[in-house]
């Protein structure tokens, strides 16, 4: 068989990708900003970095089930605790993933779950502390689209 050059293969691949990218759901995804969600969550207040750690795999073998764990530094007392943590997936058709609500009874502000990622993107975790301050962590997860769906 005649071997295609690497360039030819890439051109073919990107043509196909371009054709798929134009679908309306994708356009919708780009138009819905994660920013609005964040503003609603914080009430427009500024967000600092630090205090919160978000652990996710660098590469997800499948976007359907991506593990996540977050931890917020806090004494978790009645006066000083983490109220809630929102998880946002910027590149998903719906950016909102979940909001985790804690109380001082939680002991530690740490939780794990599994989430869906439609493509390679940034995942953002923002914590609201009982004193009204906000902290953010962000991590990029690469989602592999395998050759073998099956």
């Amino acid at each position: 068989m005649k071997d295609l050059s690497r360039r030819e293969v890439i051109v073919l691949g990107s043509t196909a990708a371009a054709a798929i990218m134009v679908s309306p759901t994708m356009a919708f995804a780009e138009a819905k900003p994660a920013k609005a969600l964040l503003e609603k969550f914080t009430g427009g207040k500024s967000i600092a970095t630090g205090k919160i750690k978000l652990e996710m795999p660098e590469i997800a073998e499948n976007g359907n089930t991506v593990p996540l764990t977050f931890t917020v530094e806090s004494p978790m007392t009645e006066k000083d605790y983490v109220k809630r943590v929102i998880i946002i997936a910027e590149g998903n058709p719906r950016a909102e993933v979940a909001t985790f609500n804690f109380s001082h009874l939680s002991g530690v502000a740490k939780a794990s779950s599994r989430m869906r990622l439609a493509k390679t993107q940034n995942v953002v975790a923002v914590a609201e502390l009982s004193d009204g301050t906000f902290y953010m962590a962000k991590t990029e997860v690469k989602v592999t689209i395998g050759g073998c769906g099956g």
């Binding site: 295609l4 043509t15 196909a16 054709a19 050759g147």
Partner: peptide, 18 residues
Amino acid sequence: KALSALFAVTMLSATSIF
């Protein structure tokens, strides 16, 4: 679209071995 995607995927798969 489907055809062009199928064609590209087929070509990629066929050449991916290499």
